[in-house]
Every structure is written in structure tokens, then in C-alpha cells.
């Protein structure tokens, strides 16, 4: 660890959050998926697997990838998994919005969404209109978290800890549980579990003593 500076750690943390954000934003295309069969994706997963807290979820991802590889059109199979969990509705899936889990109504665009909007507004930010998703989408939150980390690259801001605790951990567990109920290859269930494991470890690490 002597070589690693605080800023490097933070850069890694940010890129991992952004990696999760990318996976949860939309389906992987053919090229992106290929990187998880032989390429940077394999390396990253192997690295993560070595961390005991992550082993189980990474293995879930890997086994899903093996299953998918055997299919005719792996990228479509995975896209269908993505849809089934995140895109259809709450019937069998896990909509990636904090409002669904945190509001009494179970509706979209509830207070958690407004909180994110207010947070963004205060800092002159907005969700990319091309994406056109509510601001309490998990990927938007993770993207923002990455930015918070980089903004304070040489330390750990109060804002960062606060954001993780208030805006993400408040619903992540329910979200991951909901995803787990879906029965398919298990790739995204693995990703969600890995995210949960990672963020749990991260918050312990950055918490002031």
C-alpha cells in the first residue's frame, strides 16, 4: 500500500462505482459482453474474486457468463435478463429506482427522486436528457457518487459518506433482494450482490474512526 496514494485509491473507487453504473444503465452490446469472456472484464472479475467478501457474487457472475456463452445469442440472452429484472415492471423484477422501495406508495418519482433533483439542482446538475430516467435510478446515483469521490480525490468528504448512507444504502438491500427473486442466468443478480458487498466494504473503509 505504500505506493498507493489516497488519490489513486479514490480513482479506483470511483471507477468501480462507474463500472457498476455502466452495468446497470443498459444492456451490454456484443463488444462489451465480449470483454467479459476474454478481455479486461475477465481481468477485473478475477481481481475482484480474490477479495473474500466478493468471491460468492463474482462466482455467480462467472457462472452466469458460462451459461450465457452456451446460448445461441449470448448478448440477447443477457439483454433479456436485464429487461426481466430492470425494465418490465415490479411484478417479477426489481425496478432500479429508490422511490419504489422507499415510498409508502411504491410509486415512481416520489420523495427520493425529489431529493436527488434538489441535490443536483443545488450543484447545477441534471440527468442527461438522452437517458431520460428518474434521478433516483441506481446508475445515476452511482455515477454521482463517482463524481463525489473524484471531486475530493485526496480525501473523503462528509458529503460522500452521507450520500452513500442516505441515498444508496437506504434501499440497496431491498433492491438486491428483489433482483434475487428473478430466475434467469443470474448475471445481474450477481452484479447487484457484488455492488452490495463492495459498498458495504467501502463504507467501512472510508468511515472516520
Amino acid at each position: 500500500m505504500t505506493e498507493t496514494t489516497v488519490s489513486e485509491i479514490n480513482e479506483t473507487r470511483a471507477s468501480l462505482y462507474w463500472w457498476f453504473a455502466t452495468l446497470l444503465t443498459k444492456e451490454l452490446d456484443k463488444e462489451q459482453l465480449a470483454m467479459y469472456f476474454c478481455g479486461e472484464g475477465v481481468t477485473l472479475l478475477d481481481q475482484l474474486e480474490q477479495e473474500p467478501d466478493f468471491t460468492a457474487s463474482v462466482q455467480k457472475i462467472k457462472s452466469a457468463l458460462t451459461t450465457i456463452l452456451a446460448m445461441n445469442k449470448p448478448e440477447l440472452e443477457l439483454a433479456a435478463d436485464f429487461s426481466q429484472i430492470f425494465l418490465t415492471d415490479t411484478k417479477a423484477g426489481a425496478p432500479p429506482y429508490a422511490s419504489v422501495y422507499l415510498s409508502k406508495s411504491g410509486q415512481l418519482f416520489e420523495q427520493p427522486h425529489q431529493d436527488m433533483i434538489d441535490l443536483f439542482k443545488a450543484q447545477g446538475l441534471t440527468v442527461d436528457p438522452e437517458f431520460n430516467e428518474p434521478a433516483d435510478h441506481i446508475a445515476v446515483q452511482l455515477d454521482y457518487l463517482g463524481n463525489l469521490i473524484i471531486q475530493d480525490v485526496n480525501g473523503v468528504s462528509e458529503a460522500q459518506i452521507n450520500f452513500i448512507e442516505v441515498h444508496i444504502l437506504s434501499w440497496l438491500e431491498q433492491f438486491v433482494k428483489a433482483a434475487d427473486k428473478v430466475n434467469n442466468s443470474g448475471f445481474y443478480q450477481g452484479v447487484c450482490q457484488l455492488l452490495q458487498a463492495y459498498i458495504k466494504q467501502d463504507i467501512v473503509a472510508i468511515m472516520p474512526d
Binding site: T12, E40, G41, V127, Y144, N147
Partner: peptide, 20 residues
């Protein structure tokens, strides 16, 4: 700046931008 590291290729474009 991170192109060299393994994650760089796996990360897509951001979802947040400056507001008008």
C-alpha cells in the same frame, strides 16, 4: 487518463451533466 487500467474500457459515458 485511466485508459491504461483495466476498468477504463468497461466503463461507459456518464449520465449526469451540467444543467442550464
Amino acid at each position: 487518463g485511466l485508459m491504461a487500467t483495466s476498468t477504463a474500457a468497461l466503463v461507459g459515458p456518464g449520465l449526469i451533466q451540467a444543467a442550464n
